[in-house]
């Protein structure tokens, strides 16, 4: 049984959902409070859940990126531990520069909750290891700041290095190159805007999310 550290910031609101998803696939979640440091060696991997950390004040993810717990997460990243950020978790990982690029306000300037289809571009060794290249998956998005941006040079770099995790079949928010999720250079850190933890059973409208945990 793998122990998964789940980060909690003030304003995180998908923490309990991630907790259940981790339990559902047979792993053991453990809370990591934003003011506390931790020892990466006690864990198999880490998840940064979605929500509105610090109420999205300043910029979504910007304040959380500087919380004490992030120092430990950076150490974990340097040691190569798998780290997964979902929605606001993705924004936090970008703000902490653990992932390339930034997430801007959706091009239509509104919050959008809807089901989307995604194409898996590159699988991640821990989060989504059962996914195959080119596979289509179905799950919801729910965000106001999901428009992914990188410069042209950086885009080429992450494409060449196979860092793109998944893309939207129909771009809902103006993201560069339809990008819905990316990995870091070492491919241990991964983030995505869609919510796999909200697609864990048929009654949720899809159970494709199970493959991401």
């Amino acid at each position: 049984m793998r122990k998964v550290g789940v980060l909690r910031f003030p304003g995180t609101n998908c923490d309990r959902d991630i907790w259940h998803a981790v339990e559902q696939v047979g792993d053991t979640p453990q809370w990591l409070w934003y003011q506390d440091r931790f020892n990466p060696k006690d864990f198999d991997s880490f998840i940064v859940p979605g929500g509105f950390s610090y109420g999205d004040y300043l910029r979504s993810g910007a304040l959380a990126a500087h919380a004490p717990v992030m120092q430990s997460l950076k150490e974990a990243s340097e040691l190569g531990y798998p780290i997964f950020g979902v929605c606001n978790g993705f924004q936090i990982l970008c703000e902490a520069q653990l992932l390339p690029g930034v997430l801007m306000r959706n091009s239509h300037l509104r919050f959008l909750d809807t089901m989307v289809d995604l194409t898996v571009i590159n699988a991640h060794k821990r989060f989504g290891q059962k996914l195959e290249k080119g596979q289509k998956v179905h799950m919801p998005i729910a965000h106001a700041d999901g428009c992914y941006y990188v410069s042209d040079d950086d885009l080429k770099r992450i494409q060449d290095n196979q860092q793109i995790y998944c893309t939207y079949v129909r771009n809902p928010n103006g993201s560069v190159a339809d990008i819905a999720g990316v990995m870091n250079k070492n491919k241990n850190v991964v983030g995505m805007m869609p919510h796999p933890e909200r697609a864990m059973y048929e009654w949720m409208g899809s159970c494709d999310g199970q493959k991401f945990f």
Binding site: C14, R16, F111, E197
Partner: peptide, 13 residues
């Protein structure tokens, strides 16, 4: 309604 989060809580059927 698409401007409302309808699924946070992961319990919406």
């Amino acid at each position: 309604y698409n401007q409302y989060d309808q699924r946070v809580g992961a319990a919406t059927a």
